[in-house]
Design a protein around this nucleic acid. Structure first.
Length: 376
RNA sequence: GGUGGGGUAGCGAAGUGGCUAAACGCGGUGGACUGUAAAUCCACUCUCUCCGAGUUCGGCAGUUCGAAUCUGUCCCCCACCA
């Protein structure tokens, strides 16, 4: 296996687990949060800043890099690591999510998906083989299988058809990747809110030699209870000796819920996106830095945070930067928000180690003001 | 002093007889954001006892059923000429 997973400890309290994932570009402890860097950049941040935060693995995106600058450019640059100057691990999403999120126009066929370039309207065709070819050019450590991410809600009939196709596509990805000793490949379990379909999908995918397993099709607008329910019955179906990745989840409450059910890896655009929208994630809940109440507040963003931003700047200054639309404001908030989640993950790992997970979960829910249906 | 142009909500700026409490932009205030078409999007932004009502478009006086829009006059600003 290109990707190694070492299980360090299972929680005595719940399904949470502590592990170490090793890729060709390094290893990191899990549960882990992976910042999203779609366009070969974690928006606004440099490699040094990400390293200072302690990020060990980031995401890139097949679809976006395929249409710009083009996988050939990145291949010639020596791969995505060299291209973007990130010597640590990279996971690339397959483009499957863009089929879901991007286009009004798309036609899903057995062979692949026809859809339109969101920048210039060009007709594009993405298939499992094409996605893997691009990801090979990118040279990511972990590639994702090309899947279909069906919307919520979808009918059982549709979901069944979709899941069966996603399984066939996963096998084609595996076939296309045969002999690749440098990159790992994760399969994606779909099935929506239908337990038997999730089970079927997981059982089928488990038969093949994937390096890890993701749970997809969640965080697409379904209620939190459904997400938890799906995780409760899906995660135990996944191999214990491989990493488990919940795609697209990144609010503190949902991360805790998912870790509790045995998930190891997370990614989410939330910290970087809301930073650019002027919001900070703090131990006291979400702060909208545009708000007037921060005008004369000369204390740090988050008194419990030791990030670069909190060590050096005040709320008043950050509010000023955001209101003045100064780039530095968005950068400083991005640094803080990623650090915030990074630190939360460290706390989670400690809590698993010490079997104090529920204590932590309760505290975080209370401190962050997480309530039913409202998570950050 | 003369000639021309102009004074509209916090600012800029449309509107030139009824459909106008008045487009739009900025600013202001709040909200949203989940495998990134997102430094984006949404709402509110004259006053009030806010379903409804009341005062507005430099001031005053008129014309009219009805005026930000027409007339007179006064005040102020800008440009050019003396």
């Amino acid at each position: 296996m290109v990707i190694k997973y070492q299980l360090i400890k299972e929680s005595k309290e719940c399904k949470a687990r502590l592990g170490i994932v090793t890729t060709p570009h390094g290893s990191f402890e899990t549960p882990v949060f992976m910042p999203v860097g779609t366009n070969a950049t974690v928006k606004t941040l440099t490699k040094e800043e990400l390293e200072a935060i302690g990020a060990e693995i980031i995401l890139g995106n097949t679809y976006h890099l395929w249409i710009q600058p083009g996988n050939d450019v990145i291949k010639k640059a020596g791969g995505l690591h060299k291209f973007m100057n990130w010597p640590h691990s990279i996971l690339t999403d397959s483009g499957g999510f863009q089929v879901f999120s991007l286009s009004d126009f798309r036609k899903i066929e057995e062979e692949g998906v026809i859809f339109r370039n969101h920048k210039n309207g060009d007709l594009l065709f993405l298939s499992p083989e094409q996605s893997i070819k691009i990801q090979k050019d990118l040279g990511s450590d972990i590639m994702m299988a090309f899947d279909e991410c069906p919307p919520y809600p979808s009918t059982y009939e549709y979901m069944k058809t979709s899941v069966e196709r996603t399984i066939r596509w996963a096998k084609r990805c595996l076939e296309e990747n045969k002999g690749n000793e440098k990159q790992g490949l994760f399969a994606i379990v779909q099935g929506g809110e239908y337990e038997d379909l999730r089970k079927y999908c997981a059982e089928e995918l488990k038969k093949y030699d994937f390096d890890g397993f993701a749970i997809g099709g969640l965080s697409v607008g379904e209620p939190k209870e459904i997400q938890n329910e799906v995780l409760t019955y899906t995660t135990p179906l996944l191999p214990e000796d491989k990493p488990r990745y919940l795609m697209g989840v990144g609010t503190p409450g949902m991360i805790l819920d998912a870790v509790e059910r045995g998930v190891d890896m997370f990614d989410c655009v939330l910290p970087t996106r809301i930073a650019r929208h002027g919001a900070a994630m703090t131990h006291f809940g979400r702060l909208n830095m545009r708000n007037k109440k921060h005008e004369y507040d000369f204390t740090p963003l988050d008194s419990k945070c030791n990030c670069y931003t909190c060590k050096n700047y005040t709320k008043s200054y950050l509010r000023h930067l955001i209101k003045a639309d100064e780039i530095l404001g968005y950068r400083l908030l991005s640094i803080h928000n990623i650090q915030f989640l990074k630190d939360l993950m460290a706390e989670i790992r400690d809590a698993i180690k010490n079997d104090t997970f529920y204590e932590l979960k309760e505290r975080v829910y209370k401190e962050y003001g997480i309530e039913d249906g409202k998570d950050f």
